[in-house]
């Protein structure tokens, strides 16, 4: 009897299957897509222009728009037109955006004009420390000095040179955990791209974005804990990001969770391009590097 029950259950459970569904949807209206992140620490403005495509179609390089007119404005004053670069929808100009300045990018292709606006945040201020420890954990602190009467948005990263031994970083103030098991965090792409960090950091990088609503106008210290590895190098970055980028991260993360969840309502990703899709955002950052020595002492390098 037991064998019979066992057999029936196994047969029943094993019959589950996957089947590809044909779906014919009304073709979505194609939008012009503008993507750019203005970096106050860099001297180049890079913009990409492309088309959206119906979901059922294959995305290929044909979607890039290489002969659009892309103009940049500062506080509604025309600055310059960006120059097309290559055949991948890129437009660039050597220009360093200024902290706190407001920029608009307008892209025109045939009779379609789309635009987006961003205000570059002020450079953030912070301090990073690591406590002396000889145990299995290392404890650190990051103190953010938040300007008063402003809505500020940040992104913190704590990165290590020897990633394979780390299991978890814990930020107790936020009850936020970063599990490092094969995690592909969206934020690593940001860290990997801007500035010289990519060249210096071969290891896995993590981070998280947050708003200052819990400590507006005050200093606030985040604590973190991780497995202690002597002679490691720890890189701490604090990015000030504009609200557009914050909303993009927020909705992108939510959409990644919801859109792969068959029981949740899908979520759209934030866009601030009038008449089109995409994102125009801005950021700036400060960085601190901490080198651990064999003796358990620490050298701080700015």
């Amino acid at each position: 009897m037991k064998k019979l029950l066992f057999f029936i259950i196994i047969i029943s459970l094993m019959t589950a299957c996957e089947k590809k569904l044909d779906y014919t949807l009304p073709q979505g209206q194609n939008h012009l897509v503008v993507n750019s992140i203005l970096n106050a620490n860099a001297d180049t403005v890079l913009v990409n222009i492309s088309w959206s495509k119906p979901t059922a179609q294959t995305l290929d390089t044909n979607l890039f728009v290489n002969n659009a007119t892309v103009d940049m404005y500062e506080a509604n004053n025309f600055l310059f037109s960006l120059t097309p670069r290559g055949q991948k929808g890129y437009y660039e100009s050597h220009y360093q955006v200024k902290n706190r300045a407001t920029y608009t990018i307008k892209a025109t292709y045939k009779d379609i004009t789309v635009s987006g606006t961003t205000q570059v945040p002020a450079r953030p201020h912070f301090s990073a420390t690591v406590e002396d420890t000889t145990g299995s954990l290392i404890a650190g602190a990051i103190t953010v000095q938040d300007p008063a009467k402003e809505n500020n948005f940040y992104l913190i990263g704590v990165q290590f040179n020897q990633p394979e031994v780390y299991d978890t970083i814990f930020f107790p103030d936020t009850a936020f955990f970063l599990f490092r098991f094969h995690r592909r965090n969206i934020l690593r792409f940001i860290f990997a791209d801007f500035g010289p960090i990519e060249a210096k950091l071969p290891g896995i990088v993590d981070g998280f974005a947050f708003a200052d609503k819990i400590f507006n106008g005050q200093s606030y210290t985040f604590h973190w804990y991780a497995v202690h590895v002597p002679t490691d190098t720890i890189f701490v970055q604090l990015y000030a990001i504009d609200e557009n980028l914050y909303k993009f991260f927020d909705t992108f993360t939510r959409s990644e969770m919801a859109n792969n969840n068959p029981f949740a309502q899908p979520a759209n990703v934030f866009t601030n391009i009038d008449g089109g899709l995409g994102l125009l955002a801005s950021l700036t950052y400060s960085e601190d590097t901490i080198i651990l020595s064999e003796q358990g002492r620490y050298n701080y390098a700015q």
Binding site: G28, H31, N35, K53, D193
Partner: peptide, 11 residues
């Protein structure tokens, strides 16, 4: 209905 490339692609 539609898909488009993310701002991340410029990275």
């Amino acid at each position: 209905l539609e898909q488009y490339i993310s701002v991340r692609h410029i990275l």
